[in-house]
Design a protein around this nucleic acid. Structure first.
Length: 128
RNA sequence: AGGUGGAGGUGUGCGGUCGCUUCUGAAACGCGGAAGCGCGACAGGAGAGGAAAGUCCGGACUCCACAGGGCAGGAUGCCGGUGCUAAAUAAGCACGGGGAAUGGUGGUAAAGCGCCAUUCACGGAAAGUGCCACAGAAAACAAACCGUCAAACGGGCUGAAAGGUCUGCGUGACAAGGGUGAAAAGGUGGUGUAAGAGACCACCGGGAUUUCCAGUAAUGGAAUCCGCAUGGCAAACCCCGUCCGGAGCAAGAUCAAAUAGGGAACUGGAGGUGGCCCGCUUUAAGAUCCGUUACGGCGGAUCGCAGUUCCGGGUUGAUUGCUAAGACAAAUGACCGAUCCCGGAAACGGGAAACAGAAUCCGGCUUAUGGCCUCCACCUUUCG
RNA sequence: CGGGCCGUAGCGCAGACUGGUAGCGCGUCUGCUUGGGGUGCAGAAGGUCUGGGGUUCAAAUCCCCACGGCCCGA
């Protein structure tokens, strides 16, 4: 059951889209998220959670220069965004989330990334 | 056949599921009287590179500034003409000519020199200034350490003497030889001389101008003349020719909102109480100057104040600039199958690659790069 | 997009403008001093000057390109 959800093929549930309205796009939203100071650190990523007006499980992905060059930063952000997209339907809290990539994610397997994201989300109280 | 190094080319293909950016069409929904706008299920199209990189150059494009001339500063650099690429008189490539360096080779007793190949950020060293360590006598109006030569003088030897010879000091002549250096003031041979020297001669080299010939031209060749005079460095200052206003898509343009302030024009600046100041009503009732006066005031101007309208700048947001990729916390990903590659006897495991991710666009340069292909050089093995 | 600075011994720096000898401090090593250590004294070692190319007789220095690091402005 769990394994089948990880692979994209069987994730045939509705609403796995991740259009612009479901992403954080304003610089102020990011600043507000950091200002609230609620973060959970994992091996491959750091989760920042924001509560407040407008919060609707929107996602923002960040990769700093520490992660690597442009190719590696881009890959890290794409993996995190994909992991969030395939698991977003599991959660229902009224929050926005910023995920910061860490350097170790470049060598991580796909399953490990998904598992850690779910674990951190659980600790953050995102579960429905 | 294999390996190593270098140069150039290429930059992996197929099917499927879910998702992202953008364009076109568009149901439903929301707002609206309508036109239309917003959001958009769904369908279809397009969606990273040869270097997108570094940002070393150039251009397009945009805004600001701008009478003319000069100085300063910066950039750039052999000459000719044609072809290709190109929007281009930039730049680049190819071809021709001159020069320099390096290598090879020919030639000579040796040198100068000829030829071939490669490379070159290749204007000028008789405009001027400066520098050339160490070594060396001397490093650039030449000079003279050793040296060569000459006559006179002193000394030694020899001689009967004249003289000869050796040597010393100073004087004069000279620049051949020695040695130093990255570099030493044309080379070789001869004539000449006390000894020498382009002092003179021959050849070579160099320079000059004119003439002739060849060539579109740069330039080359021949003839004539000049004993021959000037080492290197300008990626030292500099001189000469040519070019150069500044900023950059976060350039710039449009729209909207809010706030304070700036500029211009117009209008207002009235009335009541009171002898005056002050105070009150009022959105607001000041200052200065001039004229006039019946001394209570009145009229005008300027500044300040208030109101209305307009102008310009800033801030924030949106749109645009923007593209047959065209974003703006920034789109190419995840997974499955076949196929291929690597390891392995197999089962199976790993991987689909290196360098690397568009940010206004276009050129040049540079750097990075697995595999495969082509060429070159070298090495090893086998066969003939 | 535009601009600036740095790279020299293990570490921190000078030398570069004006080209010919690479130097200073700390540290390291050796010896002496001390019962031993520290301190002190004496001596020594240690640098492809980030890499490549060019100019020059000669380059850390001048010129060009590259690599790495840091900073600033819009």
């Amino acid at each position: 059951m769990e394994e089948s959800r990880i692979s994209g093929v069987q994730a045939r549930r509705p609403d796995v889209g991740l259009g612009r309205s479901r992403r954080l796009t304003a610089s102020d939203d990011f600043a507000a998220t950091y200002a609230q100071g609620r973060s959970l650190a994992g091996r491959y990523m750091v989760l920042w959670v924001r509560q407040g007006p407008g919060a609707a499980l929107r996602i923002g992905v960040v990769a700093s220069r520490v992660v690597g060059d442009a190719v590696r930063r881009n890959r890290a952000k794409r993996r995190l965004r994909e992991a969030w997209r395939l698991n977003r339907h599991l959660w229902a809290a009224e929050v926005d989330v910023v995920i910061v990539a860490r350097r170790a994610i470049l060598g991580a397997s796909w399953e490990d990334v998904v598992t850690e994201l779910r674990k951190l989300a659980q600790k953050a109280g995102l579960a429905a």
